[in-house]
Design a protein around this nucleic acid. Structure first.
Lengths: 209, 209
DNA sequence: GTCTATAATCTGATAGAC
DNA sequence: GTCTATCAGATTATAGAC
């Protein structure tokens, strides 16, 4: 399950997959029936079983897809060399890193994050997955960048682990609020601006005086 | 729906209510059937309809209950006078406030928060409710306390609104992680300690030098 | 206010023709 | 790989006896 191209060029299995991601995010796993999913794709429900052995297997495929995409994105970010010199502002530097991270996010990742949030308290597998990707991996990534910035003299000395944790928690909260507001028609550019201001405030507190 | 006493002293309606809160939190709204709910209470499913016109009405009752309880708790916190003098540490002061806030939380509030998280992306009413209680009200409360602390000379001058927002986002994130870990058997005292350390770090950054 | 009985619909999943 | 037909069970909800 690697392609996410235009609907017309997708195989039936891929169509089922992308439709499932959308419907699970919109109506929840339990709130989506195989019937509905098949109708969305334009096939009969029995045909769905030619591609996936059942509903749970579709969810499993979504988790596998996301795990792989997230891991790749994390590795890309770690490999990437962000330009900087002695005059680079830490906030500016951080924004570049954040943009780089977002750039490497796999397609559908936003919808899958919503599915994970819907299911994290209900499904043990989703819970573990959420803890791994949304917290653990992001904490490590953030801590590494903070250490890098410190070694370059961009920020003050501090508890890098705890500061990274705090950043990840904060991003979790602001992301939820943004997702909710966007669903209710809130202006996207406005929320982007809100996020940037908050990141600037957070990183700004770590700036060397 | 105001009582949450022992199971034996509850009316049937209250039993249905508390059982619904537990089941909706554990299995989700769509994942809980009236049949299951009735069995939990010890009555037949048709009897449930003598107390609530339908499944959605039960969810509605849960939201109404939580709205009222949350509002009362917020007002109590605003009214409460926390002891302090010139030597009171801002972190210590904040911890007292946090304890006071938790003390006034209505029963079932933790489970209802989980229900809200499960449903916020699926149910417009839950979404609005979540934004109101989990973000808006808590932001105002937090900002007011920060201003109070500033006027008492306990913390530095800063953007109180944005700092309050950042605190609320951060608490959202850490609460989710804690809930998930507790469900998987993580030690509760350990998580409490983790939370306290993080709050101390956050408030400590605002301390006057 | 509880029960039995039942309606009407939806559910995930399978068998077998083409 | 798609379809028609069908299953067995679950779902919300109602009618009416007690």
């Amino acid at each position: 399950m690697t392609e996410t191209e235009d609907f017309d060029t997708q195989t039936t299995k891929e169509k089922i997959f992308t439709a499932a991601v959308r419907l699970f995010a919109e109506r929840g796993f339990h709130g989506t029936s195989i019937r509905e999913l098949a109708r969305e794709v334009g096939i009969k429900e029995s045909s769905v079983y030619n591609h996936f052995p059942g509903k749970n297997a579709i969810m499993q495929a979504i988790l596998d897809y996301h795990r792989q995409g997230f891991q790749t994105a994390s590795e890309e970010l770690t490999k990437s060399d962000l330009p900087f010199d002695d005059t680079t502002d830490p906030v500016e530097f951080w924004m570049m890193g954040a943009a780089e991270f977002l750039k490497h996010q796999p397609p559908l990742s936003q919808q899958i994050s919503i599915i994970l949030t819907n299911e994290m308290y209900l499904n043990k597998q989703c819970r573990k997955f959420f803890l791994d990707t949304m917290f653990d991996i992001q904490k490590v990534l953030t801590e590494n960048i903070l250490r890098e910035m410190y070694s370059r003299g961009m920020i003050i000395d501090c508890d890098f682990r705890k500061t990274a944790e705090q950043y990840v928690y904060f991003i979790q909260g602001i992301s939820i609020e943004t997702n909710l507001m966007l669903m209710d028609g809130k202006n996207e550019a406005e929320r982007q601006q809100h996020l940037f201001e908050h990141i600037a405030l957070f990183i700004g507190r770590l700036k060397k005086q």
